[in-house]
Design a protein around this nucleic acid. Structure first.
Length: 484
RNA sequence: GGGGAUGUGGGGUAGCCUGGUAGCCUUCAAGGUUUGGGACCUUGCGACCCCGGUUCAAAUCCGGGCAUCCCCA
C-alpha cells in the first residue's frame, strides 16, 4: 500500500529545491502556513525551539562582547521615522501604518529601530565616558513587502536581534562593524556550519540611511544567494538627524557615530534547513537542535516496564553531561514511526533500546547526518558531547566543500550568465560600486537575472582591465549571483 | 514589477472540460490485538476558499476578492 505521508515528502533537494523546501518546512513541523495572511506565518513549536536556541546563541555572544539588552516600543511615531531623509525614503514604501485617533500622531509598526534608538542615545549619552554604548533588542519587525513573500525567507514580519551601538569615533564604530562580521563568523559558520561571504554592498544597495552596509551572503543549494546578518556603518547620519551629541575627551562637542547589526533568526533557520537538510528531512547541528539525543524504546507488552525503566536510566546518564536527551515514550507510535519522525525533525542522535540492548548492556546509536547505526557500550555515553562536536564538524566540512570552487572569474556578459545559471558566483571586474555603476548593475539584473552583491569585505581585491559590461576602466572586483 | 498555475474533510487527491448522488488514501475518535524501519481489524466523525452573477439546479460556467505555489525581470 502506498503510504501517503511518505509520498508527500518525496521532493529531492538537489533536483527541485523549491519543492523540497516548501515540503520540508511543513512536514518537519517548522511552520504552518494555513492562517493565510500574506507574509505572516505561524512558527510551530519545533521551529520556535530552534529559533529560541539561535536567540540564546546570539545573545550570549553579544553580551560577551559588551552589548546590553533593552526593550523598545514596537511602534515609531511618524516624525521620528521621517527625521533622517534617506532612511524614510528607503523605508516609506514598506511601512505598516497604524490608525490613530484624530489629533494623535501617526504611528508606524517598526520596520527597524534606528529612529527610536538614536533619540534615546541623545538622552543617555552626555560624555565620551558614556561611550561606547552597545545595546540590542530581540523582537519582530514589520515590512510591508510588495514582492512575493516566501515562508521564513521573505516575510512581512520577521524575528531578529537588532544591535544599535554608539561610539565616540569613526574608528571605534568601524571596529564594531568588523566585530559584527566576527560574530557572524563565530555563530553562523563555526557553530552552525554555514559558510558565508561578507559582501560590502554597492552604494545603491546599502541600508537606507547607512554610509555603507556589509551583508553576509549564504549560497543556497539552488545557487541563489540569501542575505544573512548585515551590519551597517551609519557614521553620524542618524546622530545628526536626532541631534545626538556628546562632549569629547578634549572638551569639544561632537555627534556620536552609530552602527547597526541585524541577525534574523527566522532567516538563519532557512540556511540551517537548506544547507544541512537532506531527502529524509532536516539535519540539525548538534549545537542548535532542541533535542540532541532521542531515545526510542523498543518493547513488547511483556517487557515494556523493564525497557522503559532502563531507557530512563540511560536518559539520565546522558543528561548529567549537560546534553538534552529525551525519551520518546509515545505509546501510540511504533518504533518505525518514531525512527522516521526523528529523522524528519533532524535530531542528531537516536538511541534505540530494546531487549537486545538490555541484555548486552550495549546501545544502538543512530547518527542522523550519515544515517548509520553503530553499537556502542553503555559506558561510552559520556562521549556523546565529543561525538556531537565531530558531527558538527562534519556538517561544516560538507557545507564548506559545497561552496568551494563556486566562484568563477568572468570577463564577459555571456560568461557571467553561464556561471550564475549553473548556480555559481561570478567574480567580475566592474566599473564602479558608486552610484555611477548602477547602470551596469541594472543591465545585469535585466539581461542576466542576477545581482551585483558587492565587493568582498574581508579582502582588498585589486581590479584590473575594464568593466565586463560597459568596458570603461574597472574600479572594483564585484561578485554577481542570483539571489532571493 | 511581469507571467503562469492552483484552491474539494486535519493532510494528499478524484470529480470540473460536458452543471444534477461529492469517490479514494491518510489522519482523527472509540474498542480490541500489537510494537527491532511509518502495525492491523471493526465501527464512526469530518470537506467543495470568500462575495456576487447565470441557471429549475453550481465544486463544476462567468465576474470580483483573498491566499498559496512556480517561473521570469
Amino acid at each position: 500500500m502506498v503510504n501517503e505521508t511518505k509520498k508527500e515528502f518525496s521532493a529531492k533537494k538537489n533536483f527541485n529545491f523549491s519543492e523540497w523546501y516548501s515540503n520540508i518546512i511543513e512536514k518537519a513541523e517548522i511552520v504552518d502556513l494555513r492562517l493565510g495572511i500574506k507574509g505572516f506565518i505561524t512558527i510551530r513549536p519545533w521551529g520556535t525551539l530552534i529559533i529560541e536556541k539561535l536567540f540564546d546563541m546570539f545573545e550570549e555572544e553579544l553580551q560577551g562582547k559588551g552589548h546590553l539588552p533593552v526593550i523598545m516600543p514596537s511602534v515609531i511615531p511618524e516624525s521620528n521615522l521621517k527625521r533622517e531623509s534617506s532612511h524614510i525614503k528607503g523605508f516609506t514604501p514598506q511601512v505598516f501604518w497604524l490608525e490613530t485617533e484624530k489629533g494623535e500622531e501617526k504611528l508606524a509598526l517598526r520596520p527597524t529601530s534606528e529612529t527610536v534608538f538614536t533619540p534615546m542615545f541623545s538622552l543617555w549619552i552626555r560624555s565620551h565616558r558614556d561611550l561606547p554604548l552597545k545595546l540590542y533588542q530581540r523582537g519582530s519587525v514589520f515590512r510591508y513587502d510588495t514582492k512575493a513573500t516566501r515562508p521564513l525567507i521573505r516575510g512581512r514580519e520577521f524575528q531578529w536581534i537588532e544591535c544599535h551601538d554608539a561610539f565616540a569615533t569613526k574608528h571605534d564604530a568601524e571596529a564594531q562593524v568588523q566585530e559584527d562580521i566576527d560574530t557572524t563568523e563565530k555563530i553562523l559558520h563555526e557553530k552552525l556550519g554555514i559558510p558565508f561571504f561578507p559582501m560590502k554592498r554597492p552604494q545603491w544597495d546599502k541600508f537606507a540611511g547607512a554610509e555603507y552596509t556589509i551583508g553576509s551572503d549564504v549560497l543556497m543549494p539552488d545557487g541563489k544567494m540569501i542575505q544573512q546578518p548585515s551590519t551597517h556603518f551609519m557614521g553620524q547620519k542618524f546622530s545628526r538627524a536626532f541631534d545626538a551629541k556628546f562632549r569629547t575627551k578634549d572638551d569639544r562637542e561632537d555627534f556620536i557615530y552609530t552602527t547597526a547589526y541585524g541577525p534574523a533568526m527566522s532567516r538563519i533557520l532557512v540556511s540551517i534547513i537548506s544547507t544541512h537538510g537532506d531527502d529524509f528531512g532536516l539535519v540539525l547541528p548538534f549545537s542548535v537542535s532542541p533535542i540532541q539525543v532521542v531515545i526510542v524504546p523498543i518493547y513488547t507488552t511483556k517487557n515494556k516496564d523493564k525497557i522503559m525503566k532502563y531507557s530512563h536510566e540511560i536518559m539520565e546518564k546522558i543528561r548529567i553531561h549537560g546534553i538534552n536527551a529525551t525519551l520518546d515514550s509515545r505509546d501510540i507510535y511504533s518504533p518505525g514511526w518514531k525512527f522516521h519522525d526523528s529523522e524528519l525533525k533532524g535530531i542528531p542522535f537516536r538511541i534505540e533500546i530494546g531487549e537486545k540492548e538490555f541484555k548486552s548492556k550495549k546501545i544502538t546509536l543512530f547518527i542522523r547526518d550519515i544515517k548509520k547505526k553503530q553499537v556502542i557500550s553503555a559506558s561510552s555515553l559520556k562521549n556523546i558531547s565529543k561525538l556531537g562536536k565531530e558531527y558538527d564538524e562534519r556538517l561544516k566540512r560538507n557545507a564548506d566543500s559545497f561552496v568551494k570552487n563556486k566562484i568563477v572569474d568572468c570577463k564577459t556578459k555571456a560568461d557571467i550568465k553561464k556561471t550564475v545559471d549553473s548556480g555559481k558566483i561570478a567574480r567580475v571586474n566592474f566599473c564602479s560600486v558608486q552610484e555611477q555603476g548602477l547602470h551596469c548593475a541594472e543591465i545585469i539584473e535585466k539581461e542576466i537575472g542576477a545581482e551585483v552583491r558587492g565587493t568582498l569585505a574581508n579582502k582588498n581585491e585589486k581590479q584590473s582591465g575594464n568593466c565586463a559590461i560597459c568596458s570603461k576602466k574597472a574600479e572594483a572586483v564585484v561578485y554577481i549571483a542570483k539571489s532571493y
